[in-house]
Design a protein around this nucleic acid. Structure first.
Lengths: 346, 346
DNA sequence: TTGAAAGCGCTAACAT
DNA sequence: ATGTTAGCGCTTTCAA
């Protein structure tokens, strides 16, 4: 047993010495060109490395090679199931490619995001994955930062926000919402309310507008006071629903929240008010997070393949393909018991 | 605008040249000892860096300094709300300390975990945080790997599994379960079933045993056939509950699942069988994930401060304090409507 | 096949 | 206060 003093790790040199070869040979043996090293030396080096508990210093490797084995993932909020599912997919993809994932959360702050990208750039990751739609129009600084990163050979992929000049994997939010609206009308619903997120959130806008537009085409209008803006979170949904209740539902039969966590918050608000979701007021969401089937009644929603999105984003970033390719993943309307078929309808 | 060719990033040298100073001065200006550089040069360097869009190469910095600005977080499953909350706390703590988090998921495989620790070691992170209780007794290899890491100056912290020779932040799972049992007995429950996880999972064992032991002290025994082992997941809970239902409840009034996701799975199984959780059979869980208040009836559970655990783990690892210190965080019994008070009880 | 030597981008004595 | 000079641990020519 060769003891290492504190603060020190065995280096390649140590391994080389132990094996009685040069550092160059040790390096070759331990990775890259295994072809050019004799079987005996190879064995010697491997044994030495094993004995010393050698772990290559990835930072040194990176400086020498000029490239790292990491990919950076940026999400708004990792505790949100939407993002954690995307992250799970991304991590799966990255690990399959032998890469390590570094992660940062923006807390939905554009400033923070910019700062993060800037820091991350220093890590020289293979790729940077931006998950979650950007907010506001201060994108210039962000794009500038990313441009610099790309110019230096980095790859960028974006999840869920088409419109940035990078490889993107997304779903057609507008179309998904339209299909949901159509299905709901077919179920006999005629009077709707919509809980949407901040104006600047592209995802929220697309979903809300698609929903309303589709209804409109069916000859159904949603009164302005029944479209309420709130936070893109469960508490936001709860607050908005409570407000709606206070002001009076006035015949509204179904409330559509632009994402599941908001919808679940709204359901909670209904229960808090002594109402039964699904029976007294139908509720629909968007995303199909796993909680959608945990709540009672189970939530009608539009399925978004979050995990696959994370996975594909990694693929997209890693495959040196055409920048700014857009991968559209399919959504699926999932009708559950939170939106029962209305009496008297087919 | 100075354009950089692809594959290249401006280096400290470039900045120094641009500013007309030496690399050393540029280095000093850009970080560390700002004190020892004149205001003018400082401004010059800063301006040059800005102009070139300079981002320090963290790998190079790390090799030169011999230490990185990262901490590695290892979780079983990032899509699980328990772990994503811990991760959120850890990331918050790390970012506050100016550190970047790298993350890996084990998928609950001890082999994978070992492999991960080994790879991560190469990154020379400031600290490694192990979240989630270890499985099985193949800990020797893991501990060996961690020992080597520590010997080289790394810090290790563990979340939720006391017993490893490292700084640990955890809750008293046994005691939490005992208190829950006591509260439930006070509510008038007398006949229980327990859904527990794999034997080797310490957390599961502590909770299940604590619960049963507490009941036993109150003169209540849980028949062996009403203690069922299953996966530590929602599907596990669903399957176990379904099985229990098939075999007959035989008067059981309440089922305690050793974590919330299992409990929620069990509730779903009840509904699938046409039963009403809370009314036909009371259900209790452990953790108090946010979904616990989303389900209906809201889930009785034992609150675990997951986010705080992640945060404290970072603190623990970063504060150079006594290795193997154990931080106990408090749990709180939260009685909700999934376990209504039984008739005829005080 | 192997080793010597140069260099990756940065930091940290050591001089001045 | 600033520049010079060695490294940090590893990879990769280039010769041998």
């Amino acid at each position: 047993m060769t003891e290492q003093g504190p603060g020190s790790s065995p280096t390649l040199r140590d391994v080389a010495t132990e094996a009685g070869v040069s550092a160059a040979t040790a390096s070759r043996a331990l990775n890259g060109s295994t072809r050019n090293v004799s079987a005996e030396k190879l064995a010697l080096v491997l044994r030495a490395a094993e004995k010393l508990g050698y772990a290559p210093n990835l930072s040194a490797q990176a400086t020498a090679r000029g490239s790292t084995k990491t990919v950076a993932l940026i999400v708004h909020d990792i505790a949100d199931p939407y993002f954690s599912s995307i992250a799970a997919g991304a991590i799966e993809g990255a690990e399959a490619a032998g890469l390590t994932v570094t992660m940062a959360v923006t807390d939905r702050s554009p400033d923070r995001e910019l700062e993060i990208v800037s820091t991350l750039r220093g890590h020289r990751p293979h790729a940077i994955i931006l998950a979650g739609s950007r907010i506001g129009d201060e994108q210039d600084a962000l794009v500038g930062e990313l441009r610099a990163y790309e110019a230096a050979g980095g790859r960028v992929a974006v999840v869920s926000q088409p419109g940035l000049p990078y490889g993107t994997v997304t779903v057609d939010n507008r179309r998904g919402a339209e299909e949901l609206a159509t299905a709901l009308v077919a179920y006999g619903y005629r009077r709707f309310a919509v809980l949407r997120g901040p104006d600047a959130l592209r995802t929220s806008r697309d979903r809300a507008e698609g929903f309303v537009a589709s209804l409109s085409r069916a000859g159904i209008e949603v009164a302005g006071r029944f479209v309420v803006k709130t936070d893109f979170t469960e508490d936001g949904g709860h607050a908005a629903m409570t407000g709606l209740l206070d002001r009076g539902l006035d015949g509204v039969e179904l409330v559509f929240a632009v994402n599941d966590v908001m919808a679940i918050g709204a359901m909670r608000a209904l229960r808090d008010a002594g109402l039964v979701p699904g029976r007294d007021l139908a509720v629909a969401g968007f995303d199909d997070i796993s909680a959608a089937t945990d709540v009672d009644p189970a939530l009608t929603t539009v399925g978004v393949p979050m995990r696959a999105m994370g996975l594909r984003a990694i693929d997209l970033a890693l495959s040196g393909r055409d920048r700014s390719e857009v991968v559209w993943l399919p959504t699926t309307v999932v009708l559950r018991t939170s939106t029962p078929r209305r009496r008297g309808e087919p």
